[in-house]
């Protein structure tokens, strides 16, 4: 994955809490076995409504979502992140992003940005008022700037593990495999009663 340092762009404000992954990408899209080609599924049902913010022609270049709290709750489907990524979303700003989704976003290079609700509100109001308002996210230093909202280099929250992989562009599996000795050590001392699986049980 490509290393990230700065993300800059205009936004789609979605003033709604508890946006679940079934809304981000309806379940029918999960029948596919591919990792790409999910852009048309993003908010598929909500986009049928011409007043939905994603249909605003003034925002056709937007690349950041600003949403209410508990974004991405519900199903663990990473397909929702494939849809965001394929559509061109680079970052999601919310006061809280649900645990599994928050872990899934950076796997595809989409930055989860958690800020206090009052800061989210300032950015939300600024981008609602003017579609061209630009948000700049300094990934390396974990800060957000949005001049029109009066937000300057405000620190955001992100898991250390996600941040580490994003700024270095590392493959997490490669990083973990450098711990192979420690993993083997653990495996040699597992409790003898732990269950085993295998085709022979079928």
């Amino acid at each position: 994955m490509e290393a990230k340092s700065i993300i800059k762009g205009s936004a789609y404000p979605i003033r709604r809490s508890n946006i679940d992954t079934d809304q981000i990408l309806p379940a029918k899209w999960m029948k596919r076995v591919e990792r790409t080609g999910y852009e048309n599924g993003l908010f598929e049902i909500w986009r049928e409504d011409s007043s939905f913010i994603f249909n605003d022609p003034m925002r056709s270049q937007a690349s950041i979502i600003v949403a209410g709290e508990n974004f991405g709750c519900g199903s663990s489907r990473q397909h929702a992140v494939w849809a965001l990524r394929d559509f061109g979303i680079k970052a999601v700003i919310s006061s809280s992003i649900a645990d599994i989704h928050r872990g899934n976003l950076p796997q595809e290079g989409v930055l989860p940005v958690e800020l206090d609700q009052d800061v989210v509100e300032l950015i939300m109001a600024a981008t609602e008022a003017n579609p061209k308002v630009e948000i700049e996210i300094d990934v390396t230093n974990r800060t957000v700037t949005c001049r029109e909202a009066g937000v300057f280099a405000t620190p955001f929250r992100i898991d250390n593990a996600s941040h580490f992989n994003l700024i270095h562009g590392y493959d997490p599996i490669d990083v973990t495999l450098t711990f192979n000795k420690s993993i083997e050590q653990h495996e040699s001392s597992r409790d003898p009663w732990l269950p085993k699986c295998g085709p022979e049980f079928v």
């Binding site: 397909h79 599994i100 899934n104 997490p172 599996i173």
Partner: peptide
């Protein structure tokens, strides 16, 4: 977990 983590657990 998400699909990338599924892959991570498969491999490690």
């Amino acid at each position: 977990i998400g699909t990338s983590q599924v892959e991570h657990v498969l491999a490690t």
